[in-house]
């Protein structure tokens, strides 16, 4: 199989970069799901084993990763709806760029309050509550 020669870049703008982001967020979510099903499976071992592992998720650093995970899944979900519209709606391909900027806007509008609620505990734990 021939390899692409060096120095070529497909400059597909919104279409290409949303495709790249969809791949990366999808693959990351798949790997998290692998860990998540196994950590939940500890409820079959003992309440202590499950609670010990869940304590990891309550750590401030992992709390930041949680925001990243939710952000990745939310982008993948919204962009997936856009892909469905491009495939099945007759005007989808015409408006695919406008739809990308729409979902990016929705993503930001949901992530701002979402991040606040997810980090609320960590922020008050670090800086204390006035």
């Amino acid at each position: 199989m021939p390899t692409a020669p060096a120095g070529t870049l497909y400059r597909g703008r919104e279409g290409m970069w949303s495709w790249v982001a969809h791949r990366i967020t999808g693959a990351l979510t798949f790997f998290f799901l692998f860990a998540h099903v196994l950590d939940t499976a500890l409820v079959r071992v003992s309440p202590e084993a499950y609670d010990a592992v869940i304590a990891t998720y309550k750590n401030p650093v992992v709390n930041l990763l949680e925001v990243g995970l939710v952000g990745a899944v939310l982008f993948h979900a919204l962009n997936g709806l856009r892909v469905i519209a491009v495939d099945f709606w007759s005007k989808g391909p015409k408006y695919h760029q406008a739809m990308l900027w729409s979902i990016v806007t929705v993503w930001m509008l949901l992530m701002v309050p979402g991040t606040y609620f997810m980090l609320q505990h960590t922020i008050s734990a670090i800086f204390g509550s006035a």
């Binding site: 409820v43 309440p47 609670d51 309550k58 709390n63 949680e66 939710v70 979900a77 979402g114 609620f117």
Partner: peptide, 25 residues
């Protein structure tokens, strides 16, 4: 999955204290 997963994330990570309230019980 858009409905199932976003619903799951909203309940588990955002509502009512998020992951801080999750334990065996």
């Amino acid at each position: 999955l858009v409905f199932l997963v976003l619903g799951h994330l909203f309940i588990m990570n955002i509502l009512d204290g998020g992951v801080q309230r999750i334990n065996f019980a």
